[in-house]
Deep mutational scan, measured.
Amino acid sequence: KHLIERYYHQLTEGCGNEACTNEFCASCPTFLRMDNNAAAIKALELYKINAKLCDPH
């Protein structure tokens, strides 16, 4: 559950690194913003595939 919350935060708030290159992070310049419901679904999907989590900045 904690990991899913981290994915959700990364998708909605980002890691804080303006030069982030993680396509699944709101801080990445090319990230496409999504609403909270879509972010919750995506967080579950990312958890299932063990996607990369950013280190908070």
Score class of each variant (00 low, 15 high):
residue 55 D to Q: 13
residue 21 T to N: 15
residue 44 L to P: 15
residue 17 N to I: 09
residue 41 I to G: 13
residue 35 D to N: 07
residue 46 L to V: 09
residue 44 L to W: 05
residue 7 Y to L: 05
residue 46 L to F: 09
residue 7 Y to H: 03
residue 5 E to N: 15
residue 50 N to S: 14
residue 43 A to T: 05
residue 19 A to K: 13
residue 23 E to L: 07
residue 19 A to R: 11
residue 9 H to F: 06
residue 17 N to K: 14
residue 19 A to W: 08
residue 9 H to W: 09
residue 36 N to P: 12
residue 51 A to G: 08
residue 27 S to C: 09
residue 9 H to Y: 06
residue 27 S to E: 02
residue 3 L to C: 13
residue 8 Y to K: 14
residue 54 C to Y: 00
residue 45 E to N: 15
residue 53 L to I: 11
residue 24 F to H: 14
residue 22 N to T: 06
residue 40 A to C: 15
residue 35 D to I: 05
residue 5 E to I: 06
residue 3 L to K: 13
residue 7 Y to G: 01
residue 21 T to D: 12
residue 24 F to E: 09
residue 27 S to R: 05
residue 38 A to T: 08
residue 4 I to Y: 11
residue 8 Y to V: 12
residue 23 E to W: 06
residue 15 C to W: 00
residue 14 G to T: 01
residue 32 L to Q: 14
residue 35 D to L: 08
residue 22 N to V: 03
residue 28 C to K: 10
residue 4 I to E: 11
residue 38 A to F: 03
residue 32 L to M: 15
residue 41 I to N: 12
residue 41 I to S: 14
residue 32 L to N: 15
residue 53 L to S: 07
residue 8 Y to A: 09
residue 55 D to K: 15
residue 37 N to I: 04
residue 3 L to Q: 13
residue 31 F to Q: 07
residue 22 N to D: 02
residue 5 E to K: 14
residue 14 G to F: 01
residue 21 T to K: 15
residue 42 K to P: 01
residue 6 R to L: 07
residue 8 Y to L: 14
residue 17 N to Q: 08
residue 28 C to H: 06
residue 26 A to V: 05
residue 57 H to K: 07
residue 44 L to V: 13
residue 50 N to E: 10
residue 40 A to R: 15
residue 53 L to M: 08
residue 50 N to W: 03
residue 18 E to C: 10
residue 29 P to A: 06
residue 43 A to Y: 00
residue 47 Y to F: 15
residue 32 L to R: 11
residue 25 C to W: 00
residue 35 D to T: 06
residue 11 L to N: 01
residue 21 T to L: 08
residue 13 E to R: 12
residue 2 H to I: 15
residue 57 H to E: 02
residue 1 K to P: 01
residue 15 C to G: 00
residue 37 N to Q: 12
residue 9 H to I: 13
residue 9 H to R: 14
residue 24 F to S: 11
residue 35 D to G: 10
residue 37 N to E: 08
residue 36 N to K: 13
residue 44 L to D: 14
residue 16 G to R: 06
residue 40 A to T: 15
residue 17 N to W: 13
residue 39 A to Q: 03
residue 31 F to C: 10
residue 20 C to R: 01
residue 6 R to G: 09
residue 17 N to S: 11
residue 42 K to D: 02
residue 39 A to D: 02
residue 32 L to Y: 04
residue 53 L to G: 04
residue 5 E to V: 04
residue 36 N to G: 11
residue 45 E to H: 05
residue 3 L to F: 14
residue 24 F to P: 01
residue 56 P to C: 10
residue 33 R to S: 10
residue 45 E to K: 06
residue 26 A to L: 06
residue 44 L to F: 06
residue 12 T to V: 11
residue 45 E to P: 01
residue 34 M to S: 10
residue 19 A to Y: 07
residue 2 H to D: 15
residue 34 M to L: 13
